[in-house]
Design a protein around this nucleic acid. Structure first.
Length: 180
DNA sequence: AACCCGGAAGTCCG
DNA sequence: CCGGACTTCCGGGT
């Protein structure tokens, strides 16, 4: 069955012709002979290597997801109930401020607002932001580890409650509507 | 491995 | 100088 197939294909490849376009829209004539591998790039005088060096990487991808939000320190002040003076937030106050700030909806969200339950969506960004906002300045950079340890301190002083859930914390109800 | 937990000691700042 | 609020380090648990 395959006997005459070979002969047929041979004749098919004879003198096959094609017209190609270069990137400059120049026309090139190409002729295939019997030999399938006869096509020669040297016939295309205008052939060039594709340019690859210039536009390798022009913009740096943010390795961490999400774009940066510009810091506005006026958003991070609270009026001390005791002294009436302005000051930087404590860590639990920072969380409340963060939750109520519509610019940071990608950072944190309520799980159950009535319970004070919230979940941090971008732990590293939140920690870094705390590092900039906090009153007490230190040398090291604020990591989520350190940030979370600070939050745990609030369990013992009673301003927050444990959750055991990943990136999830519970704020004590703010002193709003407790009257009846 | 990435979290969570809390003890212990150190630091900043009002 | 004191003390509150973390910060830093860490060993242990899930």
């Amino acid at each position: 069955m395959d006997d005459n197939y070979e002969d047929e294909s041979l004749t098919d490849y004879e003198e096959f012709q094609a017209t190609l376009k270069t990137p400059e829209n120049q026309l090139i004539d190409i002729t295939f002979s019997n030999n399938k591998n006869d096509f020669d790039l040297n016939d295309c005088t205008d052939y060039r290597e594709p340019l690859s060096n210039t536009t390798a990487d022009d913009h740096v991808q943010p390795s961490d997801d999400s774009e940066e939000i510009e810091l506005d320190l006026t958003e991070w002040q609270i009026i001390d109930p005791r002294s009436g003076k302005n000051r930087r937030p404590r860590q639990n106050e920072f969380l409340e401020l963060l939750l109520s700030n519509t610019r940071y909806t990608s950072y944190i969200c309520w799980v159950d607002k009535d319970q004070g339950l919230c979940r941090i969506l971008l732990p590293n960004q939140v920690a870094a932001l705390w590092g900039k906002v906090k009153r007490r300045q230190t040398n090291g950079k604020m990591t989520y580890q350190t940030f979370a340890r600070g939050l745990r301190y609030h369990y013992t002083i009673g301003s927050m409650m444990k959750t055991k859930k990943k990136h999830t914390f519970c704020l004590k109800k703010s002193p709003k509507n407790g009257s009846s």
